[in-house]
Each structure stands twice: as structure tokens, then as C-alpha cells.
Write a protein that binds this DNA or RNA. Sequence first.
DNA 1: AGCACGCCGACT
DNA 2: GTCGGCGTGCTC
Length: 804
Amino acid sequence: MKIARIIVDVPSSQTNRLFDYKVPERLEDVVQIGMRVIIPFGPRKIMGFVLELTSDSNVDKLKNIQDVMDLTPVLTPELVEVGKWIAETTLCFYVSAFQAMLPQVLKAKYEKELWLLAEPEELTPSLEQLFGGRGVIPYEELKEHNLSYSAIQKGIQEGLMEVHYNVNSKETKKKETYITPGVPIEQLEEMYVDIPSQAKKQKQIISYFLEKEREEVRQKDLLGTLATTRASLKPLLDKGLLKEVHKEVYRDPYQNREYEPTTPFALTDEQSAAISPIHKSISTKQHEPFLLHGVTGSGKTEIYLQSIQHVLNNGREAIVLVPEIALTPQMVERFKGRFGSRVAVLHSALSAGEKYDEWRKVQRKEVQVVVGARSAIFAPFENIGIIIIDEEHESSYKQEDYPRYHARDVAIRRGEYHQCPIVLGSATPTLESFARAKKGVYTLLSLHKRMNEASMPEVERVDMREELHAGNRSMFSRSLYDKMQERLQKGEQTVLFLNRRGYSTFVMCRDCGHVMECPHCDIALTYHRRNERLKCHYCSYEEGMPDKCPSCESDSIRFFGTGTQKVEESLQHMLPEARIIRMDVDTTRRKGAHERLLTKFGNQEADILLGTQMIAKGLDFPNVTLVGVLAADSLLHLPDFRSSEKTFQLLTQVSGRAGRHKLPGEVVVQSYTPEHYSIDLASQYDYESFFQKEMNMRKMFQYPPYYFLTLLTVSHPNHLYTMDVTQKMSQFLREQLSERSVILGPTPSPLTRIKDRYRYQVMIKYRNEPMLIKVMNRLFQLYEDDVQNKDLQVTIDFQPYQMM
DNA sequence: AGCACGCCGACT
DNA sequence: GTCGGCGTGCTC
């Protein structure tokens, strides 16, 4: 007897284990590991993932698998193992890990229906009204009718009706109809003669196939070329001369685009030296992690491309991860240009259907290269030859919601399985990675020089306090203003960077200092100019703009801070002749808007590109010779131990946008604390000194990479209860963990209240804590009951990036 | 997570 | 009595 061991689609601690099911005879050759199946579970039917196939079970009364949902497994055996590992190391449910690895559309959808078994006359009047002459009704309709639950229950007991559970998958495959001869060509010729002469169009269609012995034609094309309709095709199909074939076509968002084919560039000496260890690792099938540290514009991408070429020549596959924000058409073009249709692209701007189609291309091995954001690390390849993570320092590689995995860790795990190299590339590696490279855990490859012998642009730091003392109250320093004007005269372009986070537009009373805050989240509300309303970014609470201060009744309540819109207005006022493009969430919301604006800027239809984080990366415009950073220190003062590192990374990235080609570039960094080491060293492009300095700070304050962090967050609507539970948990951790570990807290979370829930946290700092996962599991068990029945929420984040 | 079962108070 | 509230325990 064939038994399948299954993870059921019920994310709860009690069901987070394998359940055994019999494989019915008709499915014996169909069911495979990694497949989604439909199974009866209690009174209902749900989806489950087959993880194991065996022949015996400890459970005596087994139910049958009802049906399969896939014909090809959606998870390869390797990915099943990866999913289990994610669940066990990030403490999430198995089913949640598997869901996170698959396209959204493969998530099961459930619906409940009520089926009428008896004749309508046998029903009570209220039930008869409920069915209204129909045989099946959606279960939800019960709520609309004023029927008691027991009346339904009674009806079911009496056998008048029945509850049906349906399991569906949302995936749809786009199909296209093709027409092909239904009989051999000689026979078709004979039958052609028999077509009555008045059926002119039918004869035309058949001769179309006979002429060039055509095998298969798209129906759309056929009817188009012959200027006819399906009316004349139909009889031929009915008589069997021709037949229809339905073929799956992919929704290809890039299909109407042409990519300029590119050929490999000759590598510089530095590049050659960096690429040869990677090639060696590919050829010898040795797993090895590399850290490729190369200044902006040093040609890291070319190294990726040539390494991938080497992998493809070996008949293997490649995964390239790029931060979401850098996954621009320019970036895609570079890969499609080199590898054409062998590339699939996976990122969040695609529709669910498009994402599924790209994923299917990978599943069917129709492509060998995947370029995508974080979740592309789960591409179902089975013969991976290289995994590349570009801009390795980007925090978006860590998923900030459940399951909290880091793509870099998954990459290394997959690299070990496939025995292939992992390349982490960055101009500003995370301290963690650079420290590992120094220790020899990663192999360090360095590119110090820019290509085209371009030099890094000169950086001028402007002290905005001095500007104010000199009577300049505008948001542009005199120096930046002069330089922008100069660019306008010379017909060169400027990129202005504004860090939005530091510029949030909050509303404050100038008389008493009262700040408008969200009543549920304890954070400042953001002023939205368009409809004059105040919104909370965390819970979407909103209210109108007050005309009097609610605290002191003064009418000098105003909004403060600056958004890109405000900067644009001021800029237009100062430089009326400048053509400005603003890029922020508002102007790029519509599909394709991002690309259109960049193309416009690339075609020099604008002089100044003003934007937020989204323009900090990957842009490469030859005519840009000036980059302005409006508030370099706005990131520095966030409550985050990585703020210096983030500032250094951001300034380096932004500076890299200028003078990448023939024209030399210049950078102006405006700041209220220009002497801070991260601003100072970024302006000198001195990564090494920054690394040393920041490492000292981290050592002193016991932060990563010297210590590991784990963040435990507890939330509940009741304030006292939350504090109490968090207190007990921290006590438990102090008792269970080693004495050398530091347990901070409980402290209120930086966002103390979100959606009417109080949040407290405990931070654990440790160097070596092999029992941590076990201890955490035990902690979860202790509070399982409260989580299930008392609305308690407990989240655990190993190696958190965001402390909130 | 659902869903059934069972115990309890509130009502026709 | 019976209806419906909620706590408890189970799902191969």
C-alpha cells in the first residue's frame, strides 16, 4: 500500500506536522513528492503538500488522498528540504514556508457550498426561500438570510441537504487556439476535391495548409491572412479535416520589446583576476561563497554576465538576485541583451499571472537564467551552476514579514546542495559580509578601479548650518544652486536625491509644539496635500487637517518637513527654465511610469531628475555630471544601530550616479553634521576606513557582526497583560540561555501601539547560543494556549534588520 | 484554522 | 425544555 506523508494547509502549531494518507490506486503513478493534493481533513477538504512517500504508517484508519492539484510537482525534492529548513530555522509553520516559496496563484482557495438533495417542496418555507429554486448555493448566503444555524443542521441531519467543500487553485494558463490538419496531407488533398465549389472560403483554408504543407497555424493568424471568420472554419473542424489544438502561451511582459544583443566585453586585468576563481569554482563544481567588492562603475555586472555564460556553457542554470528597487528595465535589458529568451524575470511589478508564467518557464526548464528580487531565490531549477546576489548589502533581501528568511542564507544553502559558487556583489558590503571575507569564510574579490578609466566624482560637503547663518533659508545651498545653474547652461544633467524618511511631512503647532499623532499607533501623522488630510502610514487611519491646535487652540498649526513635491516647487521657482522630472511613489504608481520617466530623462528631455531612494541605484546616464544630496544626515538619526552603515551605503551609491562615462562628475552633499565619520568617509570613498571605524563601534556596543541579535516581539490589546507576558518571557530566557548572552528588556517597541495592540520586545545579544532555537521553541510551547485562545501574538526575528 | 461537541445561562 | 454563547480538543 502506498502512503503519502503530507503537510496540511492549516497554519497552526497543532497541525504543523505530517499527516498520513492512503494513495488510491488510480493515483499511484501520479502522486509524487512536492505535489499539491486535495485531502479530506476532519469534515472539510483542504490542500496539502506531499513531503514523503512510504508504504507503512502508525495510524490505523487512513483516509484517501482525494485528488492531485498538479501533474508536475511544484516543489523539487531539494526545495522541499529548503522549505523544511526555513521553517525550522526561522520558526515558522512548514506550510507557510512552502507557500512563501511558490507564486501567489498556487495558494489554495476554499469555498463552501450548500447542496440541495431533496425536492424543494420538502423544505420548510424559510429553507425554500434560501435556495430560491437553485440546487446549489454559496454557504455565505446563509448570513444574509435570517436563518438559525440549527435549522440548517437539522436539514443536514434529515438528509435534505449537504455541505460541500471545494478546493481550487487560482492559477490560470493563458491558452491560444492553433489549427492543424486532422488527417495526413495526402488524405487532405483528396478531401479538398470533395468540398463543394460554392464553399470558396473553405477551399481557401484547406489550400492554405496544402500549399506549404503547413503543420500548425495560430487560428488568429489564419483567419487574419485569409480575411475570413470562424464561420467558414467551423464546418472543416466538424468534418475532421482540421482540428483545434489549445496551447499554453505565456503572458510575457517583455515580448514586445527588442533587446540589443550584446557581446562580452574584454575584461580589464582587475576583472580577469576577479573572474577566474569564480570560473574555477564553476568548472570544478565546488561550492564557494565569494564577496565581490567593487566600486560603483567597476563593471561587476560584466563579471556576472561572463560567469553566467560559463555556467550555461556547462549546461547548468543561474539565479541572479537584484534588489527590487534596482530591477529596472535597464537592468533587465543587460541580461536579456546577453542571453535573450533564456532569461526569465521575476519581480513585484508583474501581475500575479505574469509572475506565474515566468515561474512556469523555469519549472519547465525553458529558461536557464532567472533575474529577480528576493523570492527568485526559490526558482525551481534542478541544476544550478551559480547564484549571484547583486547589491548584497540591501536590506530587502531579508523578508521582514513571516517567514523571516534571508535570501543570502537560502542562497548559501542551495549552493551547498548544487555544489556551485555564490557571488555576493557590492560597492559597500555589509559589515557582516566584509568581516567574513576578512576571516576567509568568503573569498574576497576586489575591483578598485572604474571602467573607462573614469575617476570617482569629487564630493563637496556643505554645512547647512552655515548656510542658515549666512542668511540662506532655502533648501538648496548656494554651491548646489550655482552648480545646477552651470549644468543648465552647459546642457548637462543633474540628479537630486532626497531621502524621504527624513523628510516626512508632519503637522506641528508653532505655539505649543503639539504634534498630530495617530490615536492607534503613537506615531506622527503624515500630511497629504492632495486632499488636505492626515494619514497614518502604519494603520491607514486618517483624519482632516485641523485649523486649530487641539491642545492650545492656537491657529498657527502647520505642516512641517518637505516632500519631493515641495522640493520640486521650490526648485522650479529658483530655476524657472529647468525641466524637472520628479520620481517618487506618487509619480511612479502607474504601471510602466517608472520606465517612461527614466527613458524621458535618458533622452535628455529633462535637466533635473528629482527623486527618493528609487533613483539611488543602478541608473547609468552618461550626461549626468552633478548629483545633489539634499539631507545626508536624515538617515543618521533613526533609532537603528545600522544608521551609520546605511548612510555610508546610500551616499556611496548616490555618488556613483555621476560621471560614469566621458564627462567628469561632481557631488554635493548637504548636511547639518557633515563632520560625521560616515559622511566624511563616504565623501572620500574610503570603505576600508569606514569598515574599521564602524567595526570598533559595533564591538564597543556589542552589535553585529560581533554579536548576533534576536528580537522577540509580544503584542496584545491589553497593556498590562502584554508587559506581564513579556516580563515572564525575558525571565525564562535569562534562566534558559547561557550567562554570556545579554537579554535586554522588556522594553516598549519603537512603535508601541499598532492597530490598538500594545507591543513589547526583548532583544537577545549573543555570540554563541547553540540551544537558542530549542529554547525559543519551548517558549512558544509555553504560550501556545494564550496565542490560540487569548489573542496573544509572539513573533521572533533572528538577525532582524528592522527593530520595529 | 475550522469545526464539532459539550457545558452553561437565558429565554419561549 | 431548547437556543445559542463560548471553552476544549481534534483533524491522518
